[in-house]
Design a protein around this nucleic acid. Structure first.
Lengths: 371, 371
DNA sequence: ATTGGCACTCGTCTGTGATGAGTGCCAATG
DNA sequence: CATTGGCACTCATCACAGACGAGTGCCAAT
């Protein structure tokens, strides 16, 4: 990293350029900076410093006689070492508390998430994205098979946090009501408190055991569970997007062709899911600036993302997506505190339905998890 | 209606203007039309006719020395009386058949719908919208209450067509497993084969009956059902939207401010739901052109919508939304045949799970329905 | 090292004139 | 009497030119 060898003045100038550019949107010149400084350094001196910064790749000129704009590298340096880390704005915090707590008493985590994404878009004036808790991290509270026709059952998955998922599973040979109840009991006895990957390995393990060969119902239980697991894939329906209209009319996206690509990117949710998944392991907000994101269509965007947790594990993420020219200082703290809020909210949900917590410990989930 | 008193020539000219304008996008002049006619009527004559049409409100001039463009009224007359009704394109039909039949064997009506909306957007190159089957028209196959904590149960609604809905319902006093099973039995005995509004009135009716006062479990069953019904509202999650990027960069939406409003409209799904609901009672594709839609934000749009049916009743709708300048002929037939396809697809789904059909008849649903 | 001065660059704005598509009107025509 | 050719007029679009000004780089003086 060549970042250490920036002089104090260079750092200050770069910071001022970024600060001005993100609000004005037009290249900032030496005069502007000179005036913004407490010591009245002349424009000429600033020009020298700016020329240095340009040489080092932190600034760029749109054309010869224009001011400077930050490059991706310039922004990067700004967020990494220049930006002051203010606490989040009181207003933002207050609104978040208000909206999220209001929906917490309602049921349905879906509701909280959909409000969250709207709020995130609203507060940031950018595109808001929320990746719903991944089912692969969800802890099973109950798995139930319900008959819906002669040869098909509905598999119903309920997680500790209250997420619900259902799939239709074919049934090779019909089971009586009593048998189906027995199957349900078997399933819940064996799987309660486990995550999906854990259930998968448990299923494989049990299918190998001799016992299953003789206990017909157990065999069926494992078979149906296995079917359900196969049906479940991480799909695009787990991603919420809102606020795309915020990005329409941004001067930064003047080019129509580019804008078209942009919207295609927002509708292709699979790619967004991948992007957000990538940030799950971080424990600070992650900032991806322009070309740092290799995905085509995102070259001119910045993504600020942060995971939220459940039981110390990251289970989902939220992000703000906008033009590279954005208010990093505010938005990073916004995303950060938003993810904390969601984490706390999930924790509170567990406490509400906490009766099964002991059971979870008993099954020893903590050690056998894969990310 | 003053539509009858258009002379044959006026009709032809109007038709030609629309036909040319929808493909070229620029105002069409008298010369162009003159050349397009088999009889070589001179531009001057055409001009006279066009002046007439303008006076009558079917055409308009963007500015003095430009050609004519159709007005809302002009388009209206075109779709009502001028347009030839071609059968849908072989290609479109083939693609629809291919995509829809492929997903039919999968489970999950959600999957079919989400593929449909993507396909609709793709084929039309406009914004595609699908209103999922309204639960208020759904016929209950099974309603199940599942305990998820001491004081809350999950209400699970499964319809004949395989739609699934779930809500969390609070439970005032705890019920034992056996009691809950009894409640479930009571509920299904009473409600199977009914639609939601029917269930609602049945609940009210039963709560009034003396019997319920004495049968504690029956009272609880009704109370919980009532809770579920209250939770259920027609929400925004029933609407699928795709292809918004198709509308970005349309020359018709040059104005940025307008485009912003447009995207806000697409994200405010409640309003779209209302719009589509309005077309449920039609049995032909409905076309709403520009200012005919009173909703602000839609003044410059055209909506082509058509309901799809289940058991002879309209249960959902699909639509194509785009600029007023669109290929009405192709898109109307497209939407029309698409809705037929969906209707047929739903019918086939019933046949697949047809074992309960008799039961449905028995409960006498056909007469007691409200729209 | 800092600064004022100066020539230079180049995007933006403004005005002008040419171009051409298209119109409305009118008088001539079959 | 509908149709038509001719003609003057309108107006958006384009290209070109000049003025303007923000901003730069360089250099010599402090």
């Amino acid at each position: 990293m060549s970042q250490i060898d920036l002089s104090e003045r260079q750092r200050q100038v770069l910071a001022t350029v970024v600060a001005h550019y993100v609000v004005s949107g037009s290249p900032v010149g030496s005069r502007t900076i000179s005036k913004a400084r407490p010591d009245h350094l002349s424009p000429a001196s600033i020009r020298n410093t700016m020329a240095d910064l340009e040489e080092m790749g932190y600034l760029a000129q749109p054309h010869t006689s224009a001011g400077r704009v930050p490059t991706d590298l310039g922004y990067r340096f700004y967020v990494d070492s220049l930006m002051s880390q203010r606490p989040p704005g009181k207003d933002d915090l207050e609104t978040m508390r208000h909206v999220l707590l209001a929906s917490e008493n309602d049921q349905g985590i879906d509701e909280i998430l959909s409000r969250s994404v709207k709020l995130l878009a609203g507060l940031s004036s950018q595109v808001g994205v929320v990746l719903a808790p991944r089912f692969s991290h969800a802890v099973l509270k109950r798995l139930e098979f319900l008959r819906i026709s002669e040869d098909r059952v509905l598999a119903l998955f309920i997680s500790q946090t209250g997420m619900v998922d259902h799939r239709i599973v074919p049934m090779k040979e019909s089971l009586s009501e009593a048998e189906l109840t027995a199957v349900n009991n078997l399933v819940n006895e064996n799987f309660a408190g486990l995550t999906l990957p854990e259930i998968r390995s448990r299923v494989l393990q049990m299918m190998r055991q001799e016992k299953a060969l003789y206990d017909r119902l157990l065999a069926r239980a494992m078979e149906m569970s296995s079917h359900y697991l196969d049906q479940r894939e991480e799909g695009a329906d787990e991603l919420l997007v809102d606020g795309t209209f915020n990005v329409v009319g941004e001067p930064d996206f003047a080019d129509v062709e580019q804008m078209k690509r942009l919207f295609k990117a927002f509708e292709d949710k699979n790619r967004l899911v991948e992007l957000l998944n990538a940030c799950l392991q971080q424990n600070k907000p992650q900032v991806i600036i322009g070309k740092e994101c290799l995905d085509p269509g995102f070259e001119d965007l910045t993504i600020i993302s942060s995971p939220y947790r459940y039981r110390e594990r990251p289970v989902g993420a939220l992000a703000v997506i906008g033009p590279r020219r954005m208010d990093y200082e505010r938005l990073i703290t916004l995303v950060d505190s938003f993810s904390r809020f969601l984490t706390e909210s999930l924790a509170r949900r567990t406490r509400m339905t906490g009766s099964e917590q002991a059971e979870h410990q008993k099954n020893g989930t903590e050690d056998t998890c894969d990310p």
